[in-house]
Amino acid sequence: MPRRELHPRQGDTLDRLLEAARSELDEVGHEVLTIRTVASRAGVSSATAYNYFASRDHLFAELFWRHLTDSELPRLTGRSSTRRLQQTTRHLAETIASAPALAAAATKALLGTDPAVGDLRLRVGAVFADRFRTAIGDPVQPQVLEALLFAFSGALLQTGMGLFTYPELADRLDDVVAVVMRGNP
């Protein structure tokens, strides 16, 4: 799987698969994309692609995690931890909104039961937690961090279900962050 140490040639194959998957996802959406079509676009066999990704959901989760970790970190200019958190959640919402097809695929993939996605689900959550910790600064109360993670993941789920848009997500999260951070400047 992609997290093992790769030889240069394997790294190149993985990069081609991920690039092909991103293009395919943007062109046809997650409902139509298959590992076979991604492999064909990348110029490798399906068997080779399955050496890297156990399933479509595994591929989508990997793409989403990389999208988050490859994105620029937000420029935190707020004087209070509340304002820095609002900047962070807004930046995360904008990052996710910048790839709508990936956001839709990741919502389904991360909510599924595919065992190959389990580690990536934890890695995605760790990205969110690390960004929130950075915004808050030391010390971070575990209950506050947990409340923020619950609120953020719930908001992402509601957005993925179509209850509101990503721009609305950012605005709503400003209010949620303010409530969670009351008493924690």
Rank of each mutant, 00 (worst) to 15 (best):
Y50W: 11
M181P: 04
H91N: 10
T113S: 15
R36W: 01
L163Y: 15
L157G: 03
D70M: 12
G160V: 01
F64V: 07
V28E: 14
P8H: 06
T95C: 03
V124E: 03
T89W: 10
D171H: 11
E27C: 06
F53E: 07
T134S: 14
G125D: 04
L63F: 04
A170G: 07
V124A: 05
L169K: 06
V117H: 05
H7I: 07
R172M: 09
D175W: 00
V127N: 00
V127F: 11
Y52W: 05
I35Y: 05
A93I: 00
P139L: 13
S55G: 12
S40N: 13
Y52V: 11
L111Q: 07
T134K: 09
T113M: 01
L163I: 05
T69W: 03
Y52H: 14
E94C: 02
T159K: 06
T13D: 09
F53D: 05
E146W: 14
G160R: 00
V38G: 12
A99D: 15
F53L: 14
A147P: 10
G162E: 00
A170I: 02
R123M: 10
P8C: 07
A155S: 15
F150E: 12
R123L: 11
P139S: 11
H30S: 07
P139F: 14
Y166I: 04
P142T: 12
T113C: 02
V28R: 14
L6F: 09
Q10R: 12
H7W: 05
D57C: 03
Q143N: 11
E5I: 14
S80V: 01
R182S: 11
A147F: 09
P115T: 13
N184A: 14
F64Q: 14
D12C: 13
Y50C: 06
F60Y: 15
S81D: 08
T113N: 11
E5P: 01
K108D: 06
S45Q: 04
S98E: 10
A178S: 15
R36I: 03
G160Q: 00
E31I: 00
D119H: 07
G78K: 03
L25I: 08
E72V: 13
I136T: 09
G162T: 01
L111E: 06
P142H: 12
R16T: 08
Y166Q: 06
F150N: 12
L68Y: 10
